[in-house]
Write a protein that binds this DNA or RNA. Structure first.
Lengths: 224, 224
DNA sequence: GTTGACATTGACGTCGATGTCAACTTAGCT
DNA sequence: AGCTAAGTTGACATCGACGTCAATGTCAAC
Protein backbone atom coordinates (compact mmCIF):
# COMPACT_ATOMS: atom_id res chain seq x y z
CA UNK A 1 0.00 0.00 0.00
CA UNK A 2 2.46 2.64 -1.14
CA UNK A 3 1.76 6.32 -0.61
CA UNK A 4 0.07 8.15 -3.50
CA UNK A 5 2.45 8.75 -6.41
CA UNK A 6 1.49 12.35 -7.07
CA UNK A 7 3.62 13.53 -9.91
CA UNK A 8 4.27 17.21 -9.56
CA UNK A 9 2.22 18.95 -12.20
CA UNK A 10 3.42 22.23 -13.63
CA UNK A 11 5.19 23.45 -16.72
CA UNK A 12 7.67 20.61 -16.52
CA UNK A 13 10.03 22.92 -18.36
CA UNK A 14 13.29 22.23 -16.59
CA UNK A 15 16.55 22.44 -18.47
CA UNK A 16 18.93 19.53 -18.90
CA UNK A 17 21.58 20.78 -16.44
CA UNK A 18 25.13 19.48 -16.82
CA UNK A 19 27.97 18.95 -14.39
CA UNK A 20 30.59 21.72 -14.43
CA UNK A 21 33.91 21.04 -16.11
CA UNK A 22 35.97 23.90 -14.70
CA UNK A 23 37.12 24.51 -11.17
CA UNK A 24 35.21 27.77 -11.22
CA UNK A 25 32.07 25.93 -12.24
CA UNK A 26 32.44 23.42 -9.41
CA UNK A 27 32.82 26.22 -6.88
CA UNK A 28 29.73 27.94 -8.21
CA UNK A 29 27.73 24.73 -8.05
CA UNK A 30 28.87 24.18 -4.49
CA UNK A 31 27.91 27.74 -3.55
CA UNK A 32 24.47 27.27 -5.04
CA UNK A 33 24.04 24.01 -3.19
CA UNK A 34 25.03 25.59 0.11
CA UNK A 35 22.71 28.51 -0.53
CA UNK A 36 19.91 26.11 -1.39
CA UNK A 37 20.39 24.27 1.89
CA UNK A 38 20.25 27.57 3.74
CA UNK A 39 17.12 28.81 2.00
CA UNK A 40 15.35 25.47 2.24
CA UNK A 41 16.07 25.24 5.95
CA UNK A 42 14.81 28.75 6.50
CA UNK A 43 11.72 28.77 4.27
CA UNK A 44 10.85 25.14 3.68
CA UNK A 45 10.54 23.53 0.31
CA UNK A 46 7.32 25.16 -0.83
CA UNK A 47 8.08 28.74 0.03
CA UNK A 48 11.66 28.61 -1.21
CA UNK A 49 12.09 30.29 -4.58
CA UNK A 50 14.82 29.78 -7.08
CA UNK A 51 15.38 33.53 -6.93
CA UNK A 52 16.03 33.31 -3.20
CA UNK A 53 18.61 30.62 -3.73
CA UNK A 54 20.55 32.50 -6.39
CA UNK A 55 20.32 35.66 -4.31
CA UNK A 56 21.63 33.86 -1.24
CA UNK A 57 24.50 32.57 -3.33
CA UNK A 58 25.16 36.12 -4.53
CA UNK A 59 24.67 35.05 -8.11
CA UNK A 60 22.48 35.95 -11.04
CA UNK A 61 19.18 34.18 -11.36
CA UNK A 62 20.10 32.62 -14.67
CA UNK A 63 23.24 31.00 -13.31
CA UNK A 64 21.13 28.68 -11.22
CA UNK A 65 19.82 27.04 -14.35
CA UNK A 66 23.31 26.35 -15.58
CA UNK A 67 23.68 23.78 -12.83
CA UNK A 68 20.21 22.71 -11.80
CA UNK A 69 17.14 22.22 -13.91
CA UNK A 70 14.66 23.19 -11.22
CA UNK A 71 14.04 23.67 -7.55
CA UNK A 72 13.24 19.98 -7.24
CA UNK A 73 16.49 19.06 -8.96
CA UNK A 74 18.63 21.05 -6.56
CA UNK A 75 16.78 19.55 -3.64
CA UNK A 76 17.43 16.04 -4.86
CA UNK A 77 21.08 16.87 -5.23
CA UNK A 78 21.02 18.14 -1.67
CA UNK A 79 19.45 14.95 -0.37
CA UNK A 80 21.85 12.74 -2.27
CA UNK A 81 24.82 14.70 -0.99
CA UNK A 82 23.70 14.94 2.59
CA UNK A 83 22.02 11.70 3.51
CA UNK A 84 25.06 9.51 3.71
CA UNK A 85 27.20 12.10 5.44
CA UNK A 86 24.49 12.28 8.02
CA UNK A 87 24.19 8.57 8.63
CA UNK A 88 27.93 8.17 8.63
CA UNK A 89 28.37 10.83 11.28
CA UNK A 90 25.82 9.03 13.37
CA UNK A 91 27.77 5.82 13.30
CA UNK A 92 31.36 6.78 13.85
CA UNK A 93 32.77 9.00 16.53
CA UNK A 94 35.58 8.88 19.04
CA UNK A 95 34.55 6.74 22.01
CA UNK A 96 35.31 8.21 25.44
CA UNK A 97 36.08 6.08 28.50
CA UNK A 98 36.05 2.27 28.36
CA UNK A 99 32.96 0.56 29.81
CA UNK A 100 32.85 -2.08 32.49
CA UNK A 101 30.35 -4.41 34.11
CA UNK A 102 28.73 -7.60 32.85
CA UNK A 103 28.96 -8.28 29.11
CA UNK A 104 25.27 -7.52 28.71
CA UNK A 105 25.66 -4.21 30.46
CA UNK A 106 28.55 -3.42 28.18
CA UNK A 107 26.35 -4.10 25.19
CA UNK A 108 23.56 -1.91 26.52
CA UNK A 109 26.10 0.80 27.19
CA UNK A 110 27.36 0.55 23.65
CA UNK A 111 23.82 0.83 22.32
CA UNK A 112 23.06 3.73 24.57
CA UNK A 113 26.01 5.69 23.26
CA UNK A 114 24.99 4.97 19.69
CA UNK A 115 21.51 6.25 20.42
CA UNK A 116 22.90 9.35 22.02
CA UNK A 117 24.97 10.03 18.92
CA UNK A 118 21.94 9.42 16.77
CA UNK A 119 19.76 11.86 18.66
CA UNK A 120 22.54 14.43 18.79
CA UNK A 121 23.08 14.32 15.08
CA UNK A 122 19.38 14.38 14.44
CA UNK A 123 18.95 17.44 16.60
CA UNK A 124 21.79 19.23 14.90
CA UNK A 125 20.00 18.72 11.61
CA UNK A 126 16.46 19.19 12.72
CA UNK A 127 15.42 21.52 9.93
CA UNK A 128 16.96 19.39 7.24
CA UNK A 129 15.46 16.17 8.52
CA UNK A 130 12.03 17.76 8.70
CA UNK A 131 12.53 18.88 5.12
CA UNK A 132 13.39 15.39 4.00
CA UNK A 133 10.25 14.09 5.62
CA UNK A 134 8.24 16.78 3.95
CA UNK A 135 9.49 16.28 0.43
CA UNK A 136 9.54 12.51 0.77
CA UNK A 137 5.77 12.60 0.94
CA UNK A 138 5.38 14.00 -2.55
CA UNK A 139 8.53 13.38 -4.52
CA UNK A 140 9.03 9.75 -5.54
CA UNK A 141 12.69 10.28 -6.35
CA UNK A 142 13.47 11.69 -2.94
CA UNK A 143 11.56 8.83 -1.40
CA UNK A 144 13.68 6.42 -3.37
CA UNK A 145 16.83 8.13 -2.13
CA UNK A 146 15.65 7.84 1.44
CA UNK A 147 14.62 4.23 1.00
CA UNK A 148 18.07 3.43 -0.27
CA UNK A 149 19.62 5.22 2.69
CA UNK A 150 17.36 3.27 5.02
CA UNK A 151 18.42 0.00 3.42
CA UNK A 152 22.04 0.84 4.05
CA UNK A 153 21.18 1.81 7.59
CA UNK A 154 19.30 -1.42 8.22
CA UNK A 155 22.29 -3.28 6.89
CA UNK A 156 24.55 -1.47 9.33
CA UNK A 157 22.25 -2.22 12.24
CA UNK A 158 21.90 -5.86 11.25
CA UNK A 159 25.65 -6.07 11.14
CA UNK A 160 25.87 -4.69 14.66
CA UNK A 161 23.30 -7.17 15.91
CA UNK A 162 25.14 -10.08 14.33
CA UNK A 163 28.30 -8.83 15.96
CA UNK A 164 26.53 -8.89 19.31
CA UNK A 165 25.35 -12.41 18.56
CA UNK A 166 28.87 -13.56 17.74
CA UNK A 167 29.99 -12.03 21.03
CA UNK A 168 27.34 -14.12 22.76
CA UNK A 169 25.52 -11.07 24.10
CA UNK A 170 22.35 -11.61 22.09
CA UNK A 171 20.48 -14.87 21.52
CA UNK A 172 21.74 -16.60 18.40
CA UNK A 173 18.26 -17.52 17.20
CA UNK A 174 17.11 -13.90 17.05
CA UNK A 175 16.13 -12.83 13.54
CA UNK A 176 18.74 -10.15 13.02
CA UNK A 177 17.33 -9.00 9.70
CA UNK A 178 13.84 -8.48 11.02
CA UNK A 179 15.02 -6.96 14.26
CA UNK A 180 17.12 -4.49 12.36
CA UNK A 181 14.19 -3.49 10.19
CA UNK A 182 11.91 -3.10 13.17
CA UNK A 183 14.44 -1.13 15.16
CA UNK A 184 15.23 1.28 12.37
CA UNK A 185 11.54 1.83 11.76
CA UNK A 186 10.77 2.38 15.42
CA UNK A 187 13.68 4.64 16.10
CA UNK A 188 13.18 6.79 13.04
CA UNK A 189 9.45 6.85 13.51
CA UNK A 190 9.70 7.82 17.13
CA UNK A 191 12.20 10.57 16.53
CA UNK A 192 10.28 11.84 13.54
CA UNK A 193 7.03 11.99 15.42
CA UNK A 194 8.63 13.72 18.32
CA UNK A 195 10.26 16.18 15.99
CA UNK A 196 7.33 16.99 13.76
CA UNK A 197 4.74 17.32 16.45
CA UNK A 198 7.10 18.95 18.91
CA UNK A 199 6.30 16.52 21.68
CA UNK A 200 7.00 16.70 25.36
CA UNK A 201 10.07 14.50 25.50
CA UNK A 202 13.28 15.76 26.89
CA UNK A 203 16.36 14.66 25.03
CA UNK A 204 17.56 12.43 27.85
CA UNK A 205 14.25 10.68 28.10
CA UNK A 206 14.20 10.16 24.37
CA UNK A 207 17.62 8.53 24.45
CA UNK A 208 16.55 6.38 27.37
CA UNK A 209 13.40 5.33 25.54
CA UNK A 210 15.41 4.41 22.47
CA UNK A 211 17.88 2.37 24.45
CA UNK A 212 15.09 0.54 26.23
CA UNK A 213 13.58 -0.15 22.84
CA UNK A 214 16.78 -1.71 21.64
CA UNK A 215 17.42 -3.65 24.78
CA UNK A 216 13.96 -5.11 24.77
CA UNK A 217 14.10 -5.97 21.10
CA UNK A 218 17.39 -7.76 21.60
CA UNK A 219 16.53 -9.42 24.90
CA UNK A 220 19.16 -7.52 26.83
CA UNK A 221 18.73 -6.60 30.49
CA UNK A 222 16.89 -3.32 31.05
CA UNK A 223 17.69 -1.29 34.10
CA UNK A 224 15.11 0.96 35.72
CA UNK B 1 13.38 23.02 18.91
CA UNK B 2 10.15 23.36 16.96
CA UNK B 3 10.03 22.68 13.24
CA UNK B 4 10.56 25.65 10.94
CA UNK B 5 7.56 27.97 10.87
CA UNK B 6 7.50 28.54 7.14
CA UNK B 7 4.61 30.85 6.48
CA UNK B 8 3.24 30.14 3.06
CA UNK B 9 4.15 33.09 0.87
CA UNK B 10 1.90 34.02 -2.03
CA UNK B 11 -0.75 36.56 -2.83
CA UNK B 12 -2.43 35.96 0.50
CA UNK B 13 -5.59 37.15 -1.17
CA UNK B 14 -8.15 34.75 0.21
CA UNK B 15 -11.72 35.85 0.78
CA UNK B 16 -13.42 35.86 4.18
CA UNK B 17 -15.62 32.80 3.55
CA UNK B 18 -18.75 32.43 5.68
CA UNK B 19 -20.77 29.44 6.78
CA UNK B 20 -23.85 28.76 4.65
CA UNK B 21 -27.22 29.70 6.05
CA UNK B 22 -29.47 27.74 3.70
CA UNK B 23 -29.92 24.01 3.41
CA UNK B 24 -28.82 24.27 -0.20
CA UNK B 25 -25.70 26.06 0.89
CA UNK B 26 -24.87 23.38 3.42
CA UNK B 27 -25.25 20.69 0.79
CA UNK B 28 -22.99 22.55 -1.57
CA UNK B 29 -20.37 23.03 1.11
CA UNK B 30 -20.52 19.35 1.94
CA UNK B 31 -20.14 18.42 -1.73
CA UNK B 32 -17.13 20.68 -2.06
CA UNK B 33 -15.60 19.18 1.05
CA UNK B 34 -16.11 15.65 -0.22
CA UNK B 35 -14.66 16.60 -3.60
CA UNK B 36 -11.72 18.22 -1.88
CA UNK B 37 -11.01 15.03 0.06
CA UNK B 38 -11.15 13.06 -3.16
CA UNK B 39 -8.85 15.36 -5.08
CA UNK B 40 -6.40 15.75 -2.20
CA UNK B 41 -6.18 11.98 -1.77
CA UNK B 42 -5.60 11.52 -5.47
CA UNK B 43 -3.20 14.37 -6.18
CA UNK B 44 -1.74 15.37 -2.84
CA UNK B 45 -1.88 18.81 -1.37
CA UNK B 46 0.56 20.53 -3.64
CA UNK B 47 -0.70 19.31 -6.97
CA UNK B 48 -4.36 19.74 -6.10
CA UNK B 49 -5.88 22.82 -7.69
CA UNK B 50 -8.97 24.67 -6.63
CA UNK B 51 -10.23 24.15 -10.17
CA UNK B 52 -9.94 20.39 -9.76
CA UNK B 53 -11.97 20.50 -6.59
CA UNK B 54 -14.81 22.53 -8.01
CA UNK B 55 -14.77 20.36 -11.14
CA UNK B 56 -14.93 17.19 -9.04
CA UNK B 57 -17.86 18.67 -7.17
CA UNK B 58 -19.51 19.44 -10.50
CA UNK B 59 -19.64 23.09 -9.61
CA UNK B 60 -18.41 26.36 -11.00
CA UNK B 61 -14.98 27.55 -10.02
CA UNK B 62 -16.31 30.64 -8.33
CA UNK B 63 -18.64 28.71 -6.04
CA UNK B 64 -15.68 27.32 -4.22
CA UNK B 65 -14.83 30.76 -2.95
CA UNK B 66 -18.27 31.23 -1.50
CA UNK B 67 -17.42 28.62 1.10
CA UNK B 68 -13.67 28.47 1.41
CA UNK B 69 -11.14 31.21 1.18
CA UNK B 70 -8.38 29.11 -0.28
CA UNK B 71 -7.04 25.63 -0.84
CA UNK B 72 -5.43 25.75 2.58
CA UNK B 73 -8.73 26.75 4.17
CA UNK B 74 -10.62 23.83 2.72
CA UNK B 75 -7.87 21.48 3.81
CA UNK B 76 -8.01 22.76 7.35
CA UNK B 77 -11.75 22.25 7.36
CA UNK B 78 -11.13 18.73 6.16
CA UNK B 79 -8.66 18.02 8.92
CA UNK B 80 -10.88 19.47 11.59
CA UNK B 81 -13.84 17.45 10.37
CA UNK B 82 -12.00 14.19 9.92
CA UNK B 83 -9.46 13.92 12.71
CA UNK B 84 -11.81 13.19 15.55
CA UNK B 85 -14.03 10.85 13.56
CA UNK B 86 -10.90 8.94 12.79
CA UNK B 87 -9.64 8.67 16.34
CA UNK B 88 -13.09 7.88 17.59
CA UNK B 89 -13.48 5.02 15.16
CA UNK B 90 -10.15 3.68 16.35
CA UNK B 91 -11.32 3.54 19.92
CA UNK B 92 -14.80 2.14 19.82
CA UNK B 93 -16.00 -0.93 18.02
CA UNK B 94 -18.06 -3.98 18.82
CA UNK B 95 -15.93 -6.48 20.72
CA UNK B 96 -16.19 -10.09 19.51
CA UNK B 97 -15.72 -13.08 21.83
CA UNK B 98 -14.91 -12.66 25.52
CA UNK B 99 -11.28 -13.29 26.51
CA UNK B 100 -10.00 -15.73 29.10
CA UNK B 101 -6.72 -16.60 30.82
CA UNK B 102 -4.74 -14.82 33.52
CA UNK B 103 -5.66 -11.19 34.18
CA UNK B 104 -2.43 -10.03 32.58
CA UNK B 105 -3.15 -12.06 29.49
CA UNK B 106 -6.57 -10.51 29.36
CA UNK B 107 -5.02 -7.07 29.47
CA UNK B 108 -2.56 -7.89 26.70
CA UNK B 109 -5.40 -9.30 24.67
CA UNK B 110 -7.37 -6.11 25.13
CA UNK B 111 -4.39 -4.05 24.03
CA UNK B 112 -3.79 -6.28 21.05
CA UNK B 113 -7.32 -5.77 19.82
CA UNK B 114 -7.02 -2.03 20.23
CA UNK B 115 -3.84 -2.05 18.18
CA UNK B 116 -5.48 -4.15 15.53
CA UNK B 117 -8.30 -1.62 15.29
CA UNK B 118 -5.79 1.18 15.16
CA UNK B 119 -3.84 -0.34 12.32
CA UNK B 120 -7.01 -1.26 10.46
CA UNK B 121 -8.34 2.25 10.64
CA UNK B 122 -5.00 3.68 9.71
CA UNK B 123 -4.77 1.43 6.67
CA UNK B 124 -8.26 2.34 5.55
CA UNK B 125 -7.23 5.98 5.59
CA UNK B 126 -3.71 5.66 4.32
CA UNK B 127 -3.92 8.44 1.77
CA UNK B 128 -5.52 10.85 4.17
CA UNK B 129 -3.08 10.14 6.98
CA UNK B 130 -0.17 10.62 4.63
CA UNK B 131 -1.72 13.93 3.62
CA UNK B 132 -2.01 15.03 7.20
CA UNK B 133 1.63 14.22 7.76
CA UNK B 134 2.57 16.12 4.66
CA UNK B 135 0.72 19.31 5.40
CA UNK B 136 1.59 19.20 9.07
CA UNK B 137 5.18 19.81 8.09
CA UNK B 138 4.47 23.23 6.64
CA UNK B 139 1.16 24.52 7.91
CA UNK B 140 1.25 25.67 11.53
CA UNK B 141 -2.52 25.62 11.84
CA UNK B 142 -2.81 22.04 10.70
CA UNK B 143 0.01 21.16 13.05
CA UNK B 144 -1.93 22.77 15.86
CA UNK B 145 -5.01 20.75 14.95
CA UNK B 146 -3.00 17.56 15.02
CA UNK B 147 -1.31 18.47 18.28
CA UNK B 148 -4.71 18.99 19.82
CA UNK B 149 -5.88 15.65 18.48
CA UNK B 150 -2.78 14.01 19.89
CA UNK B 151 -3.41 15.56 23.29
CA UNK B 152 -6.88 14.10 23.33
CA UNK B 153 -5.46 10.79 22.23
CA UNK B 154 -2.82 10.80 24.94
CA UNK B 155 -5.54 11.55 27.43
CA UNK B 156 -7.52 8.57 26.24
CA UNK B 157 -4.51 6.28 26.46
CA UNK B 158 -3.60 7.57 29.91
CA UNK B 159 -7.12 6.86 30.99
CA UNK B 160 -6.84 3.28 29.74
CA UNK B 161 -3.58 2.82 31.57
CA UNK B 162 -5.03 4.15 34.79
CA UNK B 163 -7.93 1.78 34.35
CA UNK B 164 -5.47 -1.09 34.05
CA UNK B 165 -3.73 0.15 37.18
CA UNK B 166 -7.00 0.24 39.09
CA UNK B 167 -7.65 -3.31 37.92
CA UNK B 168 -4.28 -4.25 39.37
CA UNK B 169 -2.93 -5.36 36.00
CA UNK B 170 -0.29 -2.68 35.77
CA UNK B 171 2.09 -1.51 38.47
CA UNK B 172 0.56 1.36 40.42
CA UNK B 173 3.80 3.36 40.48
CA UNK B 174 4.03 3.52 36.71
CA UNK B 175 3.94 7.09 35.38
CA UNK B 176 0.74 6.86 33.38
CA UNK B 177 1.07 10.32 31.88
CA UNK B 178 4.57 9.77 30.59
CA UNK B 179 3.85 6.25 29.43
CA UNK B 180 0.85 7.47 27.49
CA UNK B 181 2.95 10.16 25.81
CA UNK B 182 5.69 7.72 24.96
CA UNK B 183 3.32 5.11 23.64
CA UNK B 184 1.40 7.49 21.45
CA UNK B 185 4.63 8.86 20.07
CA UNK B 186 6.08 5.43 19.40
CA UNK B 187 2.98 3.96 17.87
CA UNK B 188 2.27 6.93 15.64
CA UNK B 189 5.90 7.28 14.72
CA UNK B 190 6.29 3.64 13.89
CA UNK B 191 3.17 3.48 11.77
CA UNK B 192 4.03 6.74 10.04
CA UNK B 193 7.51 5.64 9.18
CA UNK B 194 6.30 2.34 7.92
CA UNK B 195 3.66 4.08 5.86
CA UNK B 196 5.76 6.83 4.38
CA UNK B 197 8.74 4.75 3.48
CA UNK B 198 6.72 1.73 2.47
CA UNK B 199 8.60 -0.63 4.70
CA UNK B 200 8.75 -4.37 4.75
CA UNK B 201 6.32 -5.00 7.59
CA UNK B 202 3.32 -7.14 7.11
CA UNK B 203 0.22 -5.98 8.89
CA UNK B 204 0.25 -8.85 11.38
CA UNK B 205 3.83 -8.24 12.29
CA UNK B 206 3.13 -4.56 12.74
CA UNK B 207 0.28 -5.29 15.12
CA UNK B 208 2.43 -7.76 17.01
CA UNK B 209 5.22 -5.21 17.27
CA UNK B 210 2.84 -2.58 18.59
CA UNK B 211 1.40 -4.92 21.18
CA UNK B 212 4.84 -5.94 22.33
CA UNK B 213 5.68 -2.24 22.61
CA UNK B 214 2.70 -1.67 24.85
CA UNK B 215 3.25 -4.75 26.94
CA UNK B 216 6.86 -3.87 27.55
CA UNK B 217 6.08 -0.27 28.35
CA UNK B 218 3.48 -1.36 30.87
CA UNK B 219 5.41 -4.26 32.32
CA UNK B 220 2.94 -6.86 31.12
CA UNK B 221 3.96 -10.42 30.17
CA UNK B 222 5.06 -10.78 26.55
CA UNK B 223 4.53 -14.07 24.81
CA UNK B 224 6.83 -15.30 22.05
C1' DG C 1 -46.33 36.30 -9.05
C1' DT C 2 -43.34 39.50 -7.13
C1' DT C 3 -39.76 40.39 -4.20
C1' DG C 4 -35.22 39.97 -2.30
C1' DA C 5 -31.73 37.41 -0.05
C1' DC C 6 -28.97 33.80 -0.92
C1' DA C 7 -26.53 30.97 -4.17
C1' DT C 8 -24.20 29.98 -8.65
C1' DT C 9 -21.77 30.91 -12.74
C1' DG C 10 -17.57 31.40 -15.65
C1' DA C 11 -14.95 34.78 -18.15
C1' DC C 12 -11.35 37.72 -16.88
C1' DG C 13 -7.58 40.44 -14.70
C1' DT C 14 -3.68 39.94 -11.66
C1' DC C 15 0.35 38.21 -9.93
C1' DG C 16 4.57 36.16 -9.22
C1' DA C 17 7.59 32.34 -10.07
C1' DT C 18 9.75 29.95 -13.73
C1' DG C 19 12.87 29.18 -17.31
C1' DT C 20 15.11 31.32 -21.64
C1' DC C 21 18.38 33.77 -24.21
C1' DA C 22 21.45 36.97 -26.42
C1' DA C 23 25.02 39.66 -24.85
C1' DC C 24 28.89 39.90 -21.93
C1' DT C 25 32.96 38.35 -18.90
C1' DT C 26 36.54 35.30 -17.44
C1' DA C 27 40.44 32.46 -17.93
C1' DG C 28 43.30 29.16 -20.13
C1' DC C 29 45.89 28.45 -24.25
C1' DT C 30 48.99 29.49 -28.34
C1' DA D 1 47.42 40.03 -27.86
C1' DG D 2 43.98 37.16 -29.83
C1' DC D 3 41.06 33.20 -29.65
C1' DT D 4 37.76 30.13 -27.71
C1' DA D 5 35.09 27.54 -24.63
C1' DA D 6 33.10 27.81 -20.38
C1' DG D 7 30.74 30.51 -17.32
C1' DT D 8 27.76 34.58 -16.01
C1' DT D 9 24.28 37.99 -16.34
C1' DG D 10 19.56 40.04 -15.84
C1' DA D 11 15.78 41.64 -18.58
C1' DC D 12 11.99 39.39 -20.52
C1' DA D 13 8.34 36.23 -22.30
C1' DT D 14 5.54 32.66 -20.66
C1' DC D 15 2.48 30.38 -17.97
C1' DG D 16 -0.91 28.77 -14.95
C1' DA D 17 -3.21 29.14 -10.70
C1' DC D 18 -5.70 32.29 -8.04
C1' DG D 19 -9.36 35.10 -6.65
C1' DT D 20 -12.95 38.64 -8.31
C1' DC D 21 -17.23 40.16 -9.90
C1' DA D 22 -21.18 41.44 -12.55
C1' DA D 23 -24.70 38.82 -14.39
C1' DT D 24 -27.87 35.27 -13.67
C1' DG D 25 -30.48 31.68 -11.32
C1' DT D 26 -33.20 29.67 -7.24
C1' DC D 27 -36.54 29.55 -3.75
C1' DA D 28 -39.19 30.70 0.26
C1' DA D 29 -42.08 34.17 2.05
C1' DC D 30 -45.47 37.30 1.48
Amino acid sequence: MPPPPEAVRGPAGAAPAALPTTERGRRMRARLLAAAREVFERDGFLAARVTDISAAAGVAHGSFYTYFGSKTAVFRALVAETMDDLYASMGTRREPGPPDGSPEEVAVHRIDRANRRFVDTYLQNTALMALFEQVTTFDPEVRALRQAARERNVGRVRHSIEQLQRDGLVAADLDAEYSAHALVAMVNGLVHYWLVLDGEFEQERLVAALTRLWAQALGLPVRG
